[in-house]
């Protein structure tokens, strides 16, 4: 099963995992890493590496990060570029994580990446547009 690592500024990653638990229950092979004010990128890479090693069953790992170009992204990207069998997805949101959790059984890394991207972007909408499209 594809592993999932959440990496964010502050405690967003922990919060994301906590919120997902309320909706889809406890999940195996998902880990959250929070960047603290005092962390450097090298230290963050070590934490992400340890998490990835722990949850990768050989099927690969998806890392969800908050902001493109920021430290959680930079650290995840540096690991991914050297390790392989991983992907980094930016702009993490809860619908994205929920869809990943639901579809992890039986889906491979490529399929899950597509599911995450679709869920992440299609979940962003306004109430007005939703009502008007009816």
């Amino acid at each position: 099963m594809v592993g999932i690592v959440l990496v964010s500024h502050g405690s967003m990653a922990d919060g994301m995992l906590d919120a997902a638990r309320m909706i889809v229950g406890d999940q195996e092979g998902i880990m959250a890493i929070n960047l603290e004010e005092m962390d450097d990128v090298e230290g963050l890479i070590e934490k992400i590496t340890a998490a990835v090693e722990q949850i990768d069953t050989g099927d690969g790992v998806i890392v969800l990060v908050d902001v493109f170009g920021a430290s959680p992204f930079n650290a995840s990207a540096r690991l991914t570029m050297t390790r392989g069998n991983m992907e980094v997805i930016t702009g993490m949101n809860l619908p994205m994580l929920l869809e990943l959790a639901i579809h992890r059984q039986g889906a491979n890394l490529e399929e899950l990446i597509k599911i995450a991207l679709d869920a992440g972007s299609s979940s962003i909408k306004t109430l007005s547009d939703t009502l008007n499209s009816k």
Binding site: V41, V67, S71, N74
Partner: peptide, 12 residues
Amino acid sequence: DNRLIHGQILVS
């Protein structure tokens, strides 16, 4: 800045 380019710089 030893974190180089990161969120504070790109955003703020």
